[in-house]
Design a protein around this nucleic acid. Structure first.
Lengths: 349, 349
DNA sequence: CCGCCGACTGTAAGCGCTTGCAACATTACG
DNA sequence: CGTAATGTTGCAAGCGCTTACAGTCGGCGG
C-alpha cells in the first residue's frame, strides 16, 4: 500500500494525494473526496520513515529516562505524552537503567530516528553528551543534568532545599540519629543528593549522627538497604530515602520486623509519587511537581503559536508533604531520664 | 552528517561505508579501519528512517499496551525490552489508555514506522483490527484478545481458573458476602473478568451474596470503588479486585476507615505485581508470570536461529499466592450464635 | 476574441541508505 | 607469465514521500 496505489485508484498524481493527506496547498473538494475514499478503501497508512526522510511534517518527540519503573519518571512521561498527543505528536521513550552507555546509544537512536525534540530526564551525567547535543539544531531539554544553551532548556529541582526541609523537620521532631538511603551514588546527580544530605546534616553536628547506605532503585533496593542499616548496629530514629520508590521497601521491611512506623522510626521519601499516599503509613515526602515538569518539557519541545520557550533555565521548588510516616522521635532511655528531670520535657513529649 | 560525508572522508564509496556499518559483504581490513575512523571523527550515526526505507536491517519491535502505569503492563514491556536489547533490537511502546480508537491509531503508527514485529497487549478488543493484522506479513502477538493465525501468536491467561481458585479459597475461609471491583467493564476482556467472577460465584448460590462495582484502573479507582461499596450498605467480608493495582487503593481505603484487613475484611488482587508484597498487609493474589509472557513475546517476534515460534496459541496458568490480606471471615453475630452452639466452631475459628 | 490570473494538478528531483551487478585488483595455479 | 578464481570496490537504481516548479484550464476584464 503506497501513495502511488492510492494515487492510481483516485486517478490523480502522488503529489496530489500527498497534498490532501498533509492538508497543504489547494486541492479541489471533489478531488479531496476521491482521494480520501481511495485511502479508506485501500486502508492506506503512510510510511512514516519515508515521510520523515522526505522532510515531511515531523511530529515525534523523544524522551530518555533512567528507570521507567520508577513512577517519578513514568509520570513525567505520561504527562508529556498526553500533551504531545493533544498536539498531534507521538513520543518515543527509551530507558537507560542508569547506564551511561545506554544513554549514549539511546540518544543516537533518537537522533537517528529524527525526533523533532528530545527530553533527557536521567540521572547519569555525560559531559560529552551535553556538548554534542548543544551542537545540533534541535530543541533539547535536560532534567537535572546539563546547562541551558541556545537550543537546550534546563530543568532543575531544588533538591537541596527539599532535603533541608526534611532534615530540619525531622530534627525538630527530636530525631538525632538518621540514616540516608540512596542508590547509584557514583552517578553524579545521585551522589550529589547523598552529599547534600550529609552537608545538611553536618549543620547539626555533632548532635546529629548519620549513616548512609546505597542499594538499587526500587522497593527491593529500599528493603535491602533497610536491612543493611538494621543489621549494622546503628539505630536511627529516622530513615530518609532518596526517593519514594525506595521508601516503599523500607516501610515494608520495618513492618516485617515489627518496627512501628512512625512510632519507633520515622521514614521519609522524596518525589511524592502517587503511591506515597496509598501505602500505610502514608509517606511523608517532598513533593516534586512532575506534571508541571511534563508540561514544561512539552512547551519547550513542541513549537507553539508563540514559538517554543527555548534555552531557559527552569528551577523547580519542592514542598514538604507531611503524612503518616513521620512522628516525634521515640524517647530513648537516656532521653527519658532527661525528660523526667524536666530538662527536655518539651521536646521529648 | 550523512553516509556520503563519511565516504568522502574515508575516500571510499557510500556502498562500502554501508557495508562496513552493517557488517555485510567483504571489505578489506584496512578499509574497515579507515571507515570506522571517519565515523568516529565525524560522530556519524545513521539516519534510521533512511535505513528502514531502503530496506536495511530492521531491528525494531512495537508494543502496544493499555496502561503503562499499571505495573502489569510495564513488567511485560520491560522484560521484552531487555530481551530485545540483548538481541540488538529496540522496542517502541504506545499506550492506549483503554481507548479502542487510540489502539487503532497506535497500530497504524507502528505499522507506519515499519516495526518488524508487533505485540498488542491490551484489554480493548477490536475485531477489525485482528482481521487487518492477520492480513499483513508481520509477526504479531496478541495478549488476551485475538486468535492464533499464520502470522499471529496468541497468549491467553486462564483467568477463569485463577478467579475460581480465589473465590473457592475465600469461600473456604467462610466468606459469604463478596464484592468484585473491576474497571472498564464495557471492554470485552475486562467485562469477561467480571462475568467470570459472577459465574464462579453463582456456583455457590444462593449461599453466596455478591455485588460488583467498576471504577478506573489504578489505586485511586480502587479506593473510589471501595468507597462505593462501603456506602452502599452491602457489607462484604471479602473484596476481590480485578487486579493488584486497584487492590492497592482498596487496602488504603480500608486502612483509613480503620477497617482491618484481613481481620474485618479480606482483599484479593490479581497479577501479583511486585508492589503486592510491599504493601501492608501484603496482597493475596493470583500470580501471572509476566516475565514469561515478556519472553514469549520476544521469542515470537524476534527471529532466532530456529526461526520464530509463530502462530501458536499459548495458554498461561496462574497460581494463587496467599499472603496477608486474606483470613477467615469474621464471625458475625448470627454466626457467632451458631458457633457458640458448637455447630460451626471449626470454620469460625 | 485575446491575454492574464488564479485555482488546481502533474512532473520530477531529491531525502539518506541498501544492494545487485559490474568493474577492477589480487592471488593462486598450471 | 597467462588465466581463472576470489577478494574489494564503485555505480546506480530504487525504497515511499514531499515539494519546488511547471503546466493546464476556466473565467474575467479589456
Amino acid at each position: 500500500m503506497t501513495l502511488e496505489d492510492v494515487a492510481r485508484r483516485a486517478k490523480v498524481s502522488t503529489a496530489t494525494v500527498s497534498r490532501v493527506l498533509n492538508n497543504v496547498g489547494q486541492v479541489k473538494n471533489s478531488t479531496v473526496d476521491r482521494v480520501m475514499q481511495a485511502v479508506e478503501e485501500l486502508k492506506y497508512y503512510p510510511n512514516l520513515n519515508a515521510r520523515m526522510l522526505a522532510g515531511g511534517p515531523n511530529r515525534t518527540l523523544g524522551m530518555i529516562v533512567s528507570n521507567l519503573e520508577n513512577p517519578f519518571f513514568l509520570d513525567i512521561f505520561r504527562t508529556l505524552e498526553a500533551d504531545a498527543h493533544r498536539r498531534g505528536y507521538d513520543v518515543l521513550v527509551a530507558n537507560t537503567d542508569y547506564r551511561p552507555q545506554q544513554l549514549m546509544s539511546s540518544v543516537k537512536m533518537m537522533l537517528g530516528r529524527g525526533v523533532s525534540g528530545l527530553a533527557v530526564v536521567v540521572s547519569e551525567k555525560k559531559p560529552s553528551l551535553i556538548r554534542e547535543l548543544s551542537g545540533i539544531n534541535l530543541p533539547v531539554v535536560f532534567y537535572d543534568v546539563g546547562a541551558a544553551k541556545a537550543n537546550i532548556t534546563n530543568i532543575k529541582v531544588d533538591y537541596r532545599m527539599g532535603m533541608q526541609r526534611i532534615v530540619e523537620y525531622l530534627y525538630g521532631l527530636g530525631h538525632r540519629r538518621m540514616a540516608f538511603i540512596g542508590h547509584h551514588t557514583t552517578l553524579e546527580p545521585l551522589g550529589d543528593r547523598k552529599a547534600t544530605f550529609l552537608e545538611v546534616a553536618a549543620e547539626y553536628a555533632p548532635r546529629l549522627k548519620v549513616m548512609t547506605v546505597a542499594s538499587a532503585d526500587g522497593p527491593t533496593g529500599g528493603r535491602n538497604a533497610a536491612r543493611e542499616i538494621l543489621t549494622s548496629g546503628f539505630r536511627p530514629t529516622a530513615v530518609v530515602c532518596v526517593n519514594d520508590f525506595m521508601a516503599l521497601g523500607v516501610l515494608r521491611e520495618m513492618h516485617e520486623r515489627r518496627i512501628r512506623v512512625p512510632e519507633d522510626v520515622s521514614v521519609t521519601g522524596f518525589d511524592d509519587i502517587g503511591l506515597a499516599e496509598f501505602v500505610s503509613p502514608a509517606l511523608t515526602t517532598a513533593h516534586i511537581p512532575r506534571e508541571e515538569i511534563g508540561h514544561l518539557i512539552g512547551e519547550a519541545l513542541i513549537p507553539g503559536p508563540h514559538g517554543r520557550g527555548e534555552g531557559k533555565e527552569i528551577r523547580i521548588e519542592t514542598t514538604l508533604v507531611v503524612r503518616e510516616s513521620t512522628a516525634p522521635a521515640p524517647i530513648t532511655s537516656s532521653r527519658r531520664r532527661a525528660a523526667s528531670t524536666g530538662k527536655r520535657a518539651k521536646r521529648a513529649s
